[in-house]
Write a protein that binds this DNA or RNA. Structure first.
Lengths: 128, 128
DNA sequence: GAAATAAACGATAATCTTTATTAAATTAGT
DNA sequence: ACTAATTTAATAAAGATTATCGTTTATTTC
């Protein structure tokens, strides 16, 4: 399932831009290479790539879905001031799957930690 | 900020129905008491109550935002088969705030763990 | 308790995000 | 190069959420 220039372009954009872009952002970047690429194409491919585990969807309580080219276990902090998304490592979460299966009989397919707060930079500039 | 019969009704619905309802679901229930309540009123109040920390918004990668009357630290599992949302307790996550502040200089306002998988019941009925 | 002020409501339009449809173009296999 | 399958662009449609605005309801002041 890896043909079409557009799909490769979309994948590259997400992987090489670790800003956790929204579909709209991917679309804007993709248009530089494919000026009449359609937003529908972007959505379709982002969803297909996510379903195949090549990308990951990340959600937050506000705003659009974002996409992540990193698929190894890690989590996300969203700064509610500047909107940037940061990667976070939390080892204590890596054992969640087994724990939830034991405690609740739940087969974990995917899990996500979404943290909202104020990032270091915004904290500093606010003080100044 | 706690007047209006409609707001109290909406709050009661979310608190007394621990199904983590969507705005649409709250709307359907609220109409039993206030037949011409507006969906906009439901959204407005759910958001206001969330902003005041009286309710909590919960997001999942698919579907609408849901609301939770429990505001103490706990997390959520969504069954991708039946769509139900379950509460989860994970003590190892309760210290996230301090850890993220130490490691990343990030002031945590809120955090959310969203787990997708197949619940016990759906697993059993699938086998049968 | 009535009048004045502020907040919230209902109805509806508008917006934003995402998905579906379809004819034309592209890709893969022979 | 030819045929079948897949993908695309363009567009419409659907779904979720927010904004607008005149009217109603609640709070405050007298």
């Amino acid at each position: 399932m890896n043909y079409s220039q557009q799909r490769n372009c979309i994948l590259n954009i997400v992987v090489s831009n670790p800003i956790h872009p929204t579909a709209e952002q991917v679309y804007e970047i993709a248009r530089r290479s494919y000026p009449n690429i359609s937003l529908g194409t972007v959505y379709r491919n982002l969803n297909q790539l996510s379903e195949h585990g090549i990308l990951k969807k990340i959600c937050s309580s506000y705003g659009s879905v974002r996409f992540d080219g990193r698929t190894d276990p890690h989590f996300h902090m969203v700064c509610t001031h500047c909107g940037k998304v940061f990667d976070v490592e939390l080892e204590e979460l890596l054992s969640i799957k087994e724990k939830l299966s034991d405690m609740y009989g739940f087969d974990v397919i995917n899990y996500e930690v979404s943290i909202q707060g104020i990032c270091k930079e915004c904290k500093n500039t606010e003080i100044a």
